[in-house]
Design a protein around this nucleic acid. Structure first.
Lengths: 245, 245
DNA sequence: CCATTGTAACTGGTTAACCAGTTTGAGGAT
DNA sequence: ATCCTCAAACTGGTTAACCAGTTACAATGG
């Protein structure tokens, strides 16, 4: 890393505490320093040690916050040298930082909506790009789903349903979409169970809905796949939100 | 955490090294242990110390791997007590673990495709749910974009374009979608620049394309918004992939 | 025989010292 | 002046010891 002057932060305002984890609290403070112009994109950050002193924390906390920023691509860490803010515009970096601490307690409906958006597009793409191997995996997953669906009384089929849709996502051939989908799934599956204790009449539709999706993908028809998937969602939402919130 | 027997891992096969970071290497080993049945969903994991010894690493490496698993919801960590595998099916946990280490070196085309999928759906939702305040922010961002677009010769307008679409995403009112979008953006913006040195004729279309999207959102017409956004994408792809890969 | 208690071992979290590589700037040679 | 040398200070990364809270289990009392 080249020679660069490091800004002294001691003269800038630091906000007071809130109900955030120490790590997210530090993120917020760094964002404020950015907003006040104390830090500028492309500029080198003060060392972890001096940041800790300035922001009244330990180095460990600073370290966790910076690692998080690195994960989101907002900061470039060079070992044994230093850390600099990514070369994006100040507005951009600030906006991106705002969205980071929100990651917890996301609304269930938002999670479901996001998952459906991804599932739907993956299904359309799968109908365009599927290989024979993809089709075999999808059908195997459907078999597994049917088995769980008809044999057991508990919610195990929910995960089989996830595996079914995951196979479709993999057939779409976009690793990023698969990764985003996998990020959502645990948060949904571990919270969805309470809604689904009862299996009313609508549930019997699921196997046929799945089959329609498979057929569309086999025929390599994106339009039919989209319609089948939208139909699947319509009933899924009805199944999840019957009576309770 | 209740009393639970901890499985002894010493008798199970451990695979040899590869080109992975130590952390991801450990993740892979844990996945193998799961596949071999040494670990089962819901079961308590051995302590970080004993895992480190079993897998021939330090506690720090194990720690980082477990934190990552926790982030993806695959593991529940209870301070001063222990760590257990999330109560999902074994297939599910295995599948989810597979997708974790892939997060780096994602293909540019996959990133762009994923971003467009999210942008498109956010635009549609924004046309349905926008408030007046949302509309004002979107138009402000468009002004900023125009200013950057016509004044400067470098790629600064790219970020203004991102801020414009981000405002639309926020108008969609789904925090999860916004979060996913923000995750993608830095990886794209920091790599997109080389493609866009030259500004050929097609570039002059951008402001009008944006305006069409704004108009559709103002009219609260999801159909028109979708069409405008698809049109925007079509030209964007042409702009990005002209000549080079 | 069973319930209660007390303690020792164990758990994840944190910290301070240390490591190896980088940057810096004064001092000297040209 | 200009360039090189090199050691001291500084950088992010790692480790081992420590911390507070939990668990497990043998000793104890009924």
């Amino acid at each position: 890393m080249g020679k660069q002057s490091v800004v002294d932060l001691k003269h800038f305002e630091i906000s007071e505490e809130e109900n955030l984890s120490p790590e997210d609290f530090i993120l917020k403070k760094i964002r404020e320093l950015l907003h006040q112009g104390a830090l500028q994109p492309g500029a080198r950050l003060p060392s972890e040690r001096s940041l800790a002193e300035t922001l009244n924390t330990t180095r460990g906390t600073i370290r966790k916050a910076l690692q998080k920023l690195d994960f989101y691509g907002l900061v470039e860490i060079t070992p044994q040298s230093g850390t600099k803010i990514s070369n994006l515009g100040q507005d951009t970096v600030e906006e991106l930082m705002k969205s980071i601490p929100v990651s917890k307690d996301q609304k269930m409906i938002d999670l479901l909506e996001a998952r459906f958006v991804l599932d739907l597009q993956c299904t359309i793409l799968a109908a365009q790009r599927r290989t024979e191997a993809d089709l075999v995996l999808i059908e195997n997953r459907q078999d597994l789903f049917l088995q769980r669906f008809y044999s057991k009384g508990n919610g195990d089929y929910l995960e089989a349903d996830y595996l079914f849709h995951l196979a479709i996502a993999q057939a779409a051939g976009n690793h990023v979409l698969v990764s985003l989908l996998n990020q959502l799934t645990p948060r949904i599956v571990t919270r969805e169970q309470p809604h689904l204790k009862q299996r009313d009449n609508d549930f019997s539709r699921i196997p046929a809905e799945h089959q329609s999706i498979i057929d569309a993908i086999r025929r390599e028809s994106p339009e039919e796949a989209e319609e089948a998937m939208r139909n699947h969602r319509q009933w899924a939402l009805k199944r999840i939100f019957t009576g309770d919130n």
